[in-house]
């Protein structure tokens, strides 16, 4: 049944090479922890992606309750955290997942660095990886404001003030992030939009490029 449906689609669209390019490859011995336990360091990239998927899914559920305006943001997070069934777990996953993503990404970066895997011909993949790192930090920074409690408010204020001290463009960055002159209603909606639409969009594009390059070039060889 499924086979026939698949073949029917495949005859028309030739989809087999699409997924085979991604899925059909061999995992060499030197990155397989089943053969060399020390190869677990090669798992950090996959774990980063796994946590990222958790972040995207839990974030999607959070937006079902979250209200990005200064009067209701805190109340909606409070409601979500304490009243909604499993809301505390979903928010907990998103909150702690943010830290976990940073940790995993950090370990992955160190693995790539210390095994020299960023060397030719994989320079571009390293650069894209670093861009992903910066996007993740941006997601962390913008997400911190959204619960709209004191910690969020003052950390954001300090953060934007630091950005403001950059010569020439600093005031423009601050103006762009604040959406005005202070951390206020505009700042919250901006951070929400950046956190939920702009950065995840950029992140997904970068991840696609990252994975495409891995498939194209293969994993780096043993040392």
């Amino acid at each position: 049944m499924f086979k026939n449906v698949y073949n029917w689609i495949d005859e028309r669209l030739d989809i087999t090479p699409l997924w085979r390019d991604v899925a059909d490859h061999e995992v060499p011995e030197h990155v397989n922890p089943a053969h060399h336990f020390s190869a677990f360091v090669y798992c950090f990239g996959g774990l980063t992606f796994f946590i990222t998927v958790i972040q995207i899914l839990s974030g999607m559920f959070l937006t079902m309750y979250y209200v990005p305006d200064i009067l209701n943001a805190y109340a909606s997070v409070d409601y979500l955290n304490h009243k909604v069934a499993f809301g505390g777990i979903v928010r907990g996953m998103h909150h702690f997942g943010a830290s976990l993503v940073i940790v995993m990404m950090f370990l992955h970066t160190l693995r790539v660095f210390f095994t020299g895997s960023y060397k030719a011909p994989r320079e571009m993949n390293w650069v894209v990886g670093m861009l992903i790192f910066f996007i993740m930090l941006g997601l962390g920074f913008t997400g911190y404001l959204l619960p709209w409690d004191n910690k969020a408010y003052f950390a954001t204020k300090v953060g934007v003030q630091i950005a403001e001290s950059v010569p020439y463009i600093g005031p423009y960055i601050a103006q762009f992030l604040y959406g005005g002159d202070i951390v206020g209603a505009q700042t919250l909606t901006r951070f929400f939009a950046i956190h939920v639409f702009f950065l995840p969009g950029a992140l997904i594009a970068m991840l696609a490029a990252h994975f495409l390059m891995i498939r194209k070039q293969g994993i780096s060889g043993p040392l």
Partner: peptide, 23 residues
């Protein structure tokens, strides 16, 4: 449980600001 403080109060002068640990 994920932490949540009290609602943001811009006039609160005694709050010690603290970024997320990775900053």
């Amino acid at each position: 449980p994920a932490p949540l403080g009290y609602p943001a109060d811009p006039t609160n002068a005694s709050f010690i600001p603290m970024p997320d640990w990775y900053f």
